[in-house]
Design a protein around this nucleic acid. Structure first.
Lengths: 349, 349
DNA sequence: TTACAGAATATGAACGTTCAAATAGTGTTG
DNA sequence: CAACACTATTTGAACGTTCATATTCTGTAA
């Protein structure tokens, strides 16, 4: 039971290796009858073409890379898990594999690109955590390396849809806007926003969504906008400030902040079991404590990223008539508001 | 600036390809003078050997696979992030790459093994989530595929150190034991255990640690042992039961359970800002809410797994005198108790 | 029947590396 | 100085594909 190869399989069938190869890569070139016969033998023998040999010849590895960011907070980073899983799954379905790599900085990431392109012949990359002044996209574009980003090109945010590279992102602003609107509809007139200091792209976007909803309802936003570094303690502190300014409801830029706010609001208003509070990212923690949160369609985003990347890769090798319709190169997905009632831990449970 | 290859580099130096190859793979065979010259040229040109060509010839890909488990809870799963990051980093340092793959079931995982071995020529695998009646290890052993597991072989738990395959695990029992002891030293005599239903390997192990500490202190364990499915609500419920049985402190099998317990205990004893409570896994949530927790040395585990796997892979190709001392094939790492004071969210913050 | 076009299949070469074996170089020794 | 034992370097072949081209087959028209 030695290894099946193109040649050994061809010999045992009395055809040439190229015919077997064609059955796999260009079935239309083979007479239906032979094709069937070969296909049957392929299944029978469990033959799989060697990626290495194929890669050596075609210079394509059917493999793309994604960087593991250094673990920071983890509470928000945990959505990466879902993303990575969905990405791997989608890639697998399209016949691609996902290779991980580490880098501490963007510069380090670029160095890894060079390395991986030469050594492993990666076909492309998936970028996450795009930000202002991101050098990675420029480098990749310049070198003509296929890639797709999870995150808008914040550097040229005036016209993200005119961007040269494909990206997929979640419309955070629409999420906070909806969250705010929901709270307003529930009767709140002083909805505070608890977000990060300005300058962080995603953070500003989420803040803008809140402001839009407030303006649309002709409600004042003055002094209801708190800037706090991400984290539970800062969330508690911010919630306290907002409460003192008269806010009766709070929209947060992250679940970490919301978690702190939840604890603080409960402390301030013990009579009120379910504070009017909405977090962001729908992390496991939010689900765990029953916190309403804006949920990003991570799976959809991952799937689309793979689609865009795969289309780009396939397109470059066979520039003839398109079979598949080209997936959108720039896609802004709407998030979903997950409404929950915080667990009251009442004795009746 | 066309691609540098072994041949092009050799030509420009006036040596043969094999000499350059030797400088890379067996430097001792090359005269120091030539070696220097070649090494310099390699750096100069930024030459990197093609993984595909190498793999085709040597049948080794310097690549191992790890499965992305379906996302379940997430609150505990988030330690996977840290593990994966550390694994990738360690692998990278040893010259290996990490390929992800998905499977819903163990059987699916085995199917992927077959596929990946044939197609991508993966050199080995890292297993996570070992459990009773795990078929994966048997399959891999049977087929002679190198692998290392994160998790003891629970199926043959009588003699884990006699196991045929290498594994690394964290001594959960030692963790809960230490946690319990710490609480006892603080004066508690009725320390409850809030864990999962029996039969889950890791869960039983953690329960046993608690029981050991209690027995050692000659304290009764009757009715202080609660079995609950993982999750925040179940944690709250369990904590309430324990409180009604007179427990003044609680050790939990997971942070999810502890999080629920924390909320419940605060509700039951509002005067007591910091309930005597210890969780497990030191997840980001625990850090966020200031919950004491047993921390697994995930990074060390990952690093050791890579070491064992790399040693196994290197060993099989060069069975001569060992340079590196062989890393332990079976390793039980002690966890660390991280003590924290739950955030009180007091106005003074 | 012959010639010819088009479909179907087969053959040689190449991708970039390492292995195995051959050749050239360098002292050492009788 | 010839024979030898090493060390250092080179050469041919092979890994398993796909590309480009060549060959064979089949049917149709002259």
């Amino acid at each position: 039971m030695s290894k099946t190869t193109l040649v050994s399989l061809a010999e045992s069938l009395g055809v040439s290796r190229q015919t077997v190869s064609n059955v796999i890569n260009a079935p239309h070139r083979v007479k239906p009858e032979t094709r069937m016969r070969v296909q049957h033998a392929i299944v029978e023998s469990g033959y799989r073409p060697s990626a290495a040999a194929r890669q050596l010849r075609t210079r394509r590895s059917m493999n793309f890379g994604i960087r593991m960011m250094p673990v920071v907070d983890g509470i928000n980073g945990s959505i990466l898990d879902r993303f990575l899983h969905a990405l791997t799954e989608a890639a697998q379905e399209e016949g691609y594999r996902v290779t991980l790599f580490c880098a501490d900085t963007d510069a380090g990431e670029i160095r890894q690109y060079e390395e991986l392109l030469k050594v492993a012949d990666l076909d492309g990359f998936v970028l996450t955590g795009t930000h202002h002044g991101d050098h990675r996209t420029a480098w990749l574009l310049e070198h003509g390396i296929p890639f797709a980003a999870f995150g808008r090109p914040w550097s040229s945010i005036e016209d993200p849809f005119g961007s040269l590279h494909p990206w997929v992102d979640v419309d955070g602003g629409a999420g906070t806007e909806q969250a705010t609107r929901t709270l307003i509809e529930q009767g709140h007139t002083a909805v505070g926003f608890l977000g990060w200091p300005g300058g962080s792209g995603a953070g500003d976007d989420r803040r803008a969504g809140w402001a839009r909803a407030m303006r649309a309802a002709k409600l004042p936003t003055d002094s209801l906008d708190i800037q706090a570094d991400d984290g539970v303690p800062a969330g508690a502190q911010g919630a306290e400030q907002l409460a003192s300014k008269g806010a009766t409801a709070v929209v947060c830029a992250s679940d970490s902040l919301a978690l702190g706010a939840l604890a603080k609001l409960r402390q301030l208003h013990p009579e009120q079991a379910s504070p009017a509070l909405i977090g962001f990212d729908d992390t496991p923690v939010a689900a765990a404590v029953g916190l309403s949160s804006v949920s990003q369609p991570t799976e959809d985003a991952a799937r689309h990223i793979v689609a865009v990347l795969a289309h780009q890769l396939a397109g470059s090798s066979s520039p003839h008539g398109d079979e598949e319709p080209a997936p959108e190169r720039h896609l802004l997905l709407p998030p979903t508001l997950i409404q929950r009632t915080p667990y009251s831990f009442s004795s009746s449970t």
